[in-house]
Design a binder for these strands. Structure first.
Lengths: 143, 143
DNA sequence: TCTAAAATATGATTTAAATCATATTTAAGA
DNA sequence: TCTTAAATATGATTTAAATCATATTTTAGA
């Protein structure tokens, strides 16, 4: 339903939201360890996120990754969509191609509503709001 | 969150609920095709389900798999628990070991309630009830 | 303009899940 | 009791996801 890669990407973006800004960029090697993801792996994901404009980066000395203020207005579903694609999270619990509300599989009504709620919730808060929750003690690190 | 194996197992059990009973057992080869799962793969899963007493089977000529009336009182979560284990579906969306309501990760409150609802729903209906829904046209095949 | 430090691009390797193959055991029926 | 048809047990292979490795490009600062 959600890949490991997406989970790692979400962790990395949240980490950047909490610790970075335009003036304070962070290098891959300083991201990997605190979020418990192998460095070479998170590097690849960060590159993908940067290419797809969900995070920002600059090369060279003093370079690194960070979130611009626009980046911080994104939400968690944006990240999942980029890494996993829309199809994966939107698919029926049994991965049936034809299943939908007018042609429901035998467990459609057990699973569908909660998935819709989940997706809605994942769109509800901006990355910035989630980072503020951490700063206000409403939610906790480490990732 | 839910493995392919669990999805296949659920499909097989629902198929048996709809088409089998003590007097009418079904062979692996007659299950695989209608539920769109490779035969050797579903065979292994059915064997596991039988060993764990979620479905019934007899060997030899006229043998096959079927659901006893007790088997039909099981629910979908029972199947997931046997195939994937409890941990997988109960884990935090970010797979954080420490995340829980009193120590919530940054997206805990976005994801937790819908997961609880999903699990509750998957326990709510017996396999028999789900099969009746199909017979009454409330839900549809194929799987 | 040179050097070093960073991301980027690309592809190789590893691992776990999914899939396949087959010898063994059990039970029905001739 | 023999044969055959079924599940069972076991392990091998394949595939996709996860992970690792490295040459290239860009940029800051000397």
């Amino acid at each position: 339903m959600i890949s490991n890669s997406s989970k790692y990407a979400i962790k990395a973006v949240l980490f950047l939201a909490i610790h970075s800004n335009e003036e304070n960029k962070i290098m891959v090697k300083d991201i990997a360890e605190p979020i418990n993801v192998p460095q070479a792996y998170i590097a690849k994901l960060l590159q993908e996120l940067a290419k797809r404009k969900l995070i920002s980066s600059t090369r060279g000395p003093k370079g690194g990754f960070y979130l611009s203020s626009e980046d911080k207005e994104r939400n968690v579903m944006d990240i999942i969509s980029v890494i996993d694609g829309e199809k994966k999270i939107n698919s029926c619990l049994l991965s049936l191609e034809r299943c939908n509300s007018s042609n429901p599989c035998p467990i459609h009504h057990l699973a569908n509503q909660s998935r819709i709620v989940l997706i809605e919730n994942l769109k509800q808060n901006s990355i910035n709001e989630l980072a503020l929750d951490v700063k206000n003690g409403k939610s906790k690190l480490p990732l």
